[in-house]
């Protein structure tokens, strides 16, 4: 496949999947964000940091409109970014992936990446709504989160490469090795330092919606990139050897 076409289909796939992610979030996550920000406002009034007056609510409406309007746009940007990573990994691993066509292969890879670089890091550092999180620790929390994603992703890659060197009957040891590695990392990595002060039912429901939103991205990117690859890749050929 030509480089320009490869880049194009990867970016368009990411943008489309990101737009779906943003739209899903708009429908199912926004209500929980509004609830959490409502609690945040109550805390501001109670502490005296803000006054409950018309000017506050005018400013609030203005920035909430700005924040909500960015949901789909940010989804597209994030989709292009994660889609780019997905496209790189797909291009490099396509011949090793199981499946008869590119849609199957792509969806399988999306599932693997959903587990390794999203679900496992999420279980360690789950998403939190506004009102949870101390601004003083945001850099530390960002470093911990991105580090765990990298540890899980590179760990999966390394154990996959190791499994390739094993006999067919022992390839499962690669998966066992990754499981031991990531469980160890799970308990070794520091906890999120922030205390959760919001109602747990709100936090848990927000987290569930967050997972559904991100999952919609990974399903979409798997299907869309696979369809594009099937359509535009002309490198599949059958050669007879005697």
């Amino acid at each position: 496949m030509k480089s320009a076409l490869f880049i194009l289909i990867v970016i368009v796939s990411g943008a489309l999947a990101g737009a779906i992610h943003g739209t899903v979030n708009f429908a199912i996550v926004e209500p929980y964000l509004d609830q959490a920000i409502g609690i945040e406002n109550e805390n501001l009034f109670a502490s005296g940091e803000e006054d409950d007056n018309p000017q506050f609510w005018a400013d609030y409406e203005e920035y909430r409109v700005w924040q909500k309007s960015g949901q789909v746009l940010a989804g597209i940007i994030l989709g292009v970014a994660m889609g780019s990573l997905f496209g790189i990994v797909y291009a490099l691993s396509r011949n090793s992936l199981p499946g008869k066509n590119d849609v199957t292969k792509s969806v399988i890879l999306a599932g693997i990446m959903w587990i390794t670089i999203y679900l496992i890091p999420f279980l360690k550092y789950p998403a939190n709504p506004p009102t949870v999180g101390d601004a003083e620790t945001v850099v530390l929390r960002s470093i911990l989160y991105i580090s765990f994603i990298a540890i899980s992703g590179f760990g999966a890659f390394v154990f996959y490469k190791l499994s390739q060197k094993l006999e067919k009957s022992k390839k499962y040891l690669g998966l066992v090795g990754y499981a031991i590695f990531i469980i160890t990392a799970f308990f070794v990595m520091p906890e999120n330092p922030d205390e959760i002060t919001a109602p747990m039912n709100l936090v848990n429901e927000f987290r569930l919606m967050s997972v559904l939103g991100v999952t919609s991205f990974w399903i979409s990117i798997g299907i869309i990139l696979g369809l594009f690859w099937n359509k535009f890749d002309n490198s599949n050929s059958s050669n007879g050897y005697t």
Binding site: F6, A81, M82, L85, A91, L92, N95, N236, G240
Partner: peptide, 27 residues
């Protein structure tokens, strides 16, 4: 006689680099 299905994936390193930059910047 053997029938082999050959599937090639050949994308340039430049394309990989471009997408890696897009990934990092977007993230």
């Amino acid at each position: 006689v053997q029938q082999l299905s050959v599937s090639k994936t050949s994308v340039s390193k430049v394309a990989i680099l471009v997408l890696a930059i897009v990934f990092a910047a977007g993230l």
